[in-house]
Computed example of a mutant assay.
Amino acid sequence: MTGTAKTRNAWRMTVVLVFLGAALAALVLSMAFGSADITIAKIWHTLWSPTLRDTQDMVIWNIRFPRNIVAALVGANLAVAGAILQAVMKNPLADPQIVGVSSGAGLAGVIILILFPSWEYLVPMVAFVGALAAALMVYALAWRNGIRPTRIILAGVAVAAFLGSGISALLVFYGDRVQGALLWMVGGLSARSWPQVYVLAPYTVIGLILAFLGSRRLTILSLGDETAKGLGLPVEQTRFMMTAVAAFLAASAVSVAGLIGFVGLVIPHIARMIIGTEYRFLLPGSAFLGAAVLVVSDTLGRVLFSPVEVPVGIIMAFFGAPFFLWLLRRDA
């Protein structure tokens, strides 16, 4: 490895560590804000020695801390899923929501929540099947002698609209059962606590490990199909495997937090502008930055209009949509 390459990798590792520090700081600092402000000293004491002696201890340990963990896991999952899809589909504007993956998971989840509420424990796996089916549908529709970025976006918008109409139809026909599904569709973390942490954490660990194991393949794939084939990479097999990993991560996030958009678009793009397309650094960087951004966004949703809580999906759309338009104008 040349000196220049070592310097570049050292810079990338430094950025990843900065993103990790930002995520940890967001986890701790956001617990200080809410309907009742809590000192940082009290937060540290409760986290290191959770004796739950008073109301503030209960608020920190049973409400704010687990909710922040869920936000961090959801942000990491969506950001890494977006980074993978952007590599697989050769489109920097791809993300789980825009290309229909989140809509596939959402339709599958709504079917369970509305039609089979007693089977709610199946939502993560059913959502994964729906997300993978949507991703494969987009890929099939966009394929014609290769993949082009414009076709991916158009196919993704069409598939997302089609699946979204299915969700709307269910909400219309089963209006007496839609309250929980409506809140889930907006994308929010209200009332998320330790049970959701226990549900989401195994999916996050497995999904992120699989993503990092495939990081070298993604880096080679980003060089172009012909170059990747010349280096011996099975291109289509890699696309299918990594699409499945992205669908797994996105579906697990959607099953717990609902349809939160723009995380998978904005976060990987920002990380790529700083780190580059070396995926062994880009994937962890995206995961840590996604965790930090979603924790901060959820905190803003809790405190900006207190006592009214704004779902984090709305906060992300408010900031993410202008960024998406900027990307479109820049790449036009």
Rank of each mutant, 00 (worst) to 15 (best):
V310I: 15
S255R: 06
F248K: 02
F288I: 02
D298C: 07
G301W: 07
G224E: 13
G276N: 07
K229F: 04
L233C: 09
I206V: 14
P311D: 05
L282K: 01
I267L: 07
G214M: 13
L294D: 00
P234D: 12
M316Q: 10
S215R: 13
A251Q: 02
T238C: 11
G276W: 03
V254W: 11
L231I: 09
V199Q: 15
Q237M: 15
V303L: 05
G214K: 10
F281M: 10
P311F: 06
S255H: 09
F262W: 07
F248D: 10
M242T: 02
A287L: 09
A292E: 04
F240N: 00
Q237V: 14
T219N: 01
G258V: 04
E236Q: 12
D298S: 03
M241D: 01
P202E: 11
S306F: 14
L249A: 11
L249I: 05
A253Y: 05
F281A: 13
I267G: 00
I220S: 08
I314H: 09
G285M: 06
V245Q: 00
G261T: 02
V245Y: 03
I260V: 13
H269W: 01
G264M: 08
T219E: 12
A246N: 09
M273I: 12
Y279F: 14
I270L: 14
